[in-house]
């Protein structure tokens, strides 16, 4: 990976959190959208057990732009999986939009992922054989949208919204990394989810492309979308409105950021 990784990002704790953000994070202000209460996740059993998350509490309210930062092994990926309903906690409660999703079965989780969450991955995860618009269409297929014409219209609108309106029929291998990630963002947005979860969205991008992608995230946020970005890159993290640091499976710090 050719990602420009900043070193010494643990020193980021010294950033002054005092200045008001453009859109102040308001604990108690907006309605809580994501609520983790004493969530832990353990892999393996007994001596071999790994506590990826050890009783974390976190509340994200509607409209927030939150960065979750931590080193590899800090538990941030596990946190992202649980927030994204890709995995369920071993103990504790996760409320998504007031609904307890911690005990749901696979099919119910799939429904929640489809309707409430838009994913953006480091590796884009586009299907290589499908043109851009059909990649973006996928969530609508799983949502059971019957009309092919309507699906295509919505996919094209989503692509236009991320500036890819002129690349509808390009396949992923005909697109640059930044363009591919924009297609992936369009795919995340096409179902109009309550939250967009991004896992190292710029990790595979050159810096100019990363800037474009982050600009889109800011635009989404400006439109009132809740955005959670998981990263180990302080430059990315500091574009957010709020920064949560994870270490050893616990929330280390939680601060509002100045822009």
């Amino acid at each position: 990976m050719s990602t420009p990784v900043s070193v010494g990002h643990r020193g980021g704790a010294t950033v002054a959190p005092t200045l008001p953000a453009r859109r102040p994070p308001a604990p108690g202000g907006g309605s809580p959208l994501l609520e983790l209460i004493g969530v832990s996740k353990t892999y393996g059993v007994e001596e071999a057990a790994v506590h990826a998350l050890a009783g974390s509490d976190l509340v994200v309210t509607t409209g927030e732009y939150v960065a979750i930062m931590g080193q590899s092994g800090s538990g941030k990926s596990t946190l992202m999986h649980i927030l994204g309903c890709l995995d369920t906690p071993s103990s504790g409660t996760y409320l998504l939009d007031g609904q307890d999703v911690s005990g749901m079965d696979e099919a119910a989780l799939a429904w929640v992922r489809n309707h409430s969450i838009g994913f953006v991955f480091q590796q884009f995860h586009l299907l290589p054989r499908l043109p851009a618009w059909r990649n973006v269409e996928l969530p609508l297929l799983y949502a059971g949208r019957r009309s092919r014409r309507r699906r295509q219209e919505r996919a094209e609108a989503a692509l236009a919204a991320v500036g890819m309106g002129d690349r509808l029929s390009h396949r992923p291998n005909q697109l640059s990394g930044g363009q591919q990630q924009r297609v992936a963002i369009a795919r995340a947005l096409v179902t109009d989810p309550a939250i967009v979860l991004a896992d190292e969205p710029t990790g595979n991008l050159a810096s100019d492309q990363a800037t474009e992608v982050l600009a889109i995230f800011e635009a989404m946020h400006a439109q009132g979308r809740t955005v959670v970005v998981i990263t180990h890159d302080p430059d990315v993290a500091h574009r957010a409105q709020r920064l949560v640091r994870i270490r050893d499976g616990r929330v280390l710090s939680d601060e509002a950021l100045a822009r």
Binding site: A107, A110, W111, R113, H115, P139, Y142, A143
Partner: peptide, 16 residues
């Protein structure tokens, strides 16, 4: 495997 994982993340249920 990756495609299946992606489809599931996007909302494909096991039965689909």
């Amino acid at each position: 495997v990756r495609e299946i994982g992606l489809r599931k993340a996007l909302g494909a249920t096991p039965s689909v």
